[in-house]
Design a protein around this nucleic acid. Structure first.
Lengths: 249, 249
DNA sequence: ACAAAAACAGCAAAAACTTGCAAAAAGTAG
DNA sequence: CTACTTTTTGCAAGTTTTTGCTGTTTTTGT
């Protein structure tokens, strides 16, 4: 294999997943970790990507939330994304919120699956546009600078006119007692409208966030139909959630 | 086998697979590795392909999307962007379309200028969010895959409810006789609505595009108030545009 | 603070590159 | 056809690049 070829694959991976682990690259490319390390070092010197401890990230596109600098969360999120994508079916009309986990879902949707997706997230919309068979409708409104997420009356009004098959909610804090919570009031309004606008709601959450509570409440767990985590559905960590009428994936 | 014949095969292989190994070529062409090496060296000198350690790649193999934008045009666009930014003033409410020129404008807006910007372009919106004092409102609707631009009734409806200070139109084809033209009917609808929604309209155009016509017409030059090019306002190339009630910048 | 993972530096083997040279092939007069 | 030049090709010796491995140092998470 040519060095250039390898480096291109690395760059593609970085652009696709926004973050990659050197160990993963080493394995999938069948070269030693040192070689990958050297490649990444070179690419970093050429400003094609950003080298971080344990891997590399694309810089230029976006920097998300603070705790997302953690490379190890990514593999969990990818696992969640895989499971979530398997819930989708041809021709569905769905809603997707923002957040890194939802981004991974967007990246993982197969190229030939036709969907109609409504989203108020710039990042998710951008990613979905890579898929030729997905129709993307952006729910316009005032954009939040950090989250790159549209909020406000316009978004809620648009949502009130919809009734879609599925709503996929990413980022958010989850707790068996307190339900779904957020720290941003405006985001809550949008998420509530999203849940109302969908027949079924799917929540994506890495297990780390399963018992965290924020200031404002989006909804109770009874409003949710499916919970996707990176864990096996039978994992004891999920026990607290079994009392609800929830499908664990 | 003739040398030219061999080199043509090499080029075909490179174009087909984007990369070749010298060892593979040597084997499949039944010549020594040195001969192949010399051939590739020649082709590289003629800029027909790129020689790399162990093989060759096609040009643009390592490039992803944006590198194609040549430096030559970019400098003109930056010049235009500079002039355009100088037209803006504190507190204005403006509309921005998409396109690379408008992107340059977005990049060049000073950090401390507060504005309210409506746009149907994902890229422009994304860029504007880097500015803390700019409020960005995305005009939601169906997104075009290539242009990352929102079109359709939703966008037009939103625009019909606006009356903003300024509309900045990027990309588009301009001609003194035929006015502003485009090749996408849906985009036209949006741009027309944008012009209607603004008190003044500014057109950005690199001089190369000043005499090009496309299939569909957005508006006459009489609907435009300012034309920004990279040229000096007194440049004779702009003479054809002086008969209109246009401010040249 | 400790153990595990990752980064770094130096080394050695393998692969690829360079250069010079000579033989073969092709072209060019006389 | 022959003698000569020119081009092309293959080969060999020496150099550089790439790659994986070693042991050591740094960073990270608990």
């Amino acid at each position: 294999m040519l060095k250039e070829e390898r480096q291109k694959i690395i760059l593609d991976q970085v652009h696709l997943h926004h973050r990659v682990l050197l160990t993963d690259l080493s394995e999938s490319l069948n070269v030693s970790i040192d070689t990958v390390r050297r490649d990444v070092k070179e690419l970093a010197k050429e400003k094609k990507l950003k080298k971080v401890h344990g891997g590399a990230t694309s810089f230029g596109f976006m920097s998300f939330s603070k705790d997302d600098d953690n490379i190890y969360l990514l593999s969990k999120k990818i696992r969640i994304a895989e499971k979530t994508v398997s819930l989708l079916s041809e021709g569905q009309v769905i809603l997707m919120s923002g957040g890194t986990t939802n981004m991974e879902v967007a990246k993982m949707i197969p190229k030939r699956l036709s969907l109609t997706v409504f989203t108020p997230s710039l990042h998710v919309a951008m990613q979905l546009l890579e898929l030729p068979d997905v129709e993307v409708i952006f729910l316009g409104g005032k954009l939040l600078h950090e989250a790159k997420f549209a909020v406000g009356g316009t978004v809620v009004n648009s949502l009130n006119q919809l009734k879609v098959d599925l709503c996929i909610l990413g980022t958010g804090y989850l707790d068996a007692d307190h339900g779904l919570t957020e720290f941003d009031w405006e985001v809550i309004q949008v998420k509530q409208a999203m849940i109302r606008a969908a027949k079924k709601t799917v929540i994506l959450s890495v297990s780390d966030k399963l018992h965290s509570v924020q200031k404002f409440k989006t909804c109770d767990l009874t409003a949710v139909h499916t919970l996707v985590t990176e864990l096996h559905p039978s994992d004891p960590v999920l026990d607290r959630f079994r009392e609800f009428d929830l499908r664990l994936v």
